[in-house]
Amino acid sequence: MNIFRLAGDMTHLLSIIVLLLKIQATKSCAGVSLKTQELYAVVFVTRYLDLFYSFISLYNTVMKIIFLLTAFTIIWYMRKHKVVCQTYDKEQDTFRVLFLIVPCFVLALLVNHEMSVTEVLWTFSIYLEAVAILPQLVLLQRTKNVDNLTGNYIFMLGSYRALYLVNWVYRYFTELGYRQWIVWVSGTVQTCVYLDFFYYYVQAWRNNERMKLPG
């Protein structure tokens, strides 16, 4: 494992911790899209089915379990926690997730490495992760004002993907025969989804003001 991959994973983990801390400390999930969180849960469940039949490293196993547990913890807070669930912007969070899930699934059936249940589900998780942030970005666009923690959460999620891109370039030059087109293309799309957000995030940071998205 190279430093870019590790930095990417740590940024991913940190983004989730930031979101959980925001929810726990402020007892509020205002501005957080439950749809996106549920999509991430679907992504992790379909991707980490290999926990049952393949072992890569203790690091991999532990991280997978953490990602699964934290995803469901966030969903639990937003759906079941007495105080937190009342702060959820349900009326604003209306993205039709089936418009993401169905095309990703069809694409996974058409473009995959191997026509097996676990491989198709794994491929589906790769495609779905690329677009899973969209309900969150749409919610942000609607509520306009982005609180710092939510902004940092999304910024870190985007950074994690950007670090993975660097990791792939590094692996391409250091590992003989290493290539994974499905992951590369999806990952590039996924990183591009954040570009607009990055622009406004950096702008707010440079001007030292609260982040605001244009109408």
Binding site: S54, I56, R179, Q180
Partner: peptide
Amino acid sequence: SSPTTTHDEL
């Protein structure tokens, strides 16, 4: 067909 890459990334 290309060999399946082991999914060693998260």
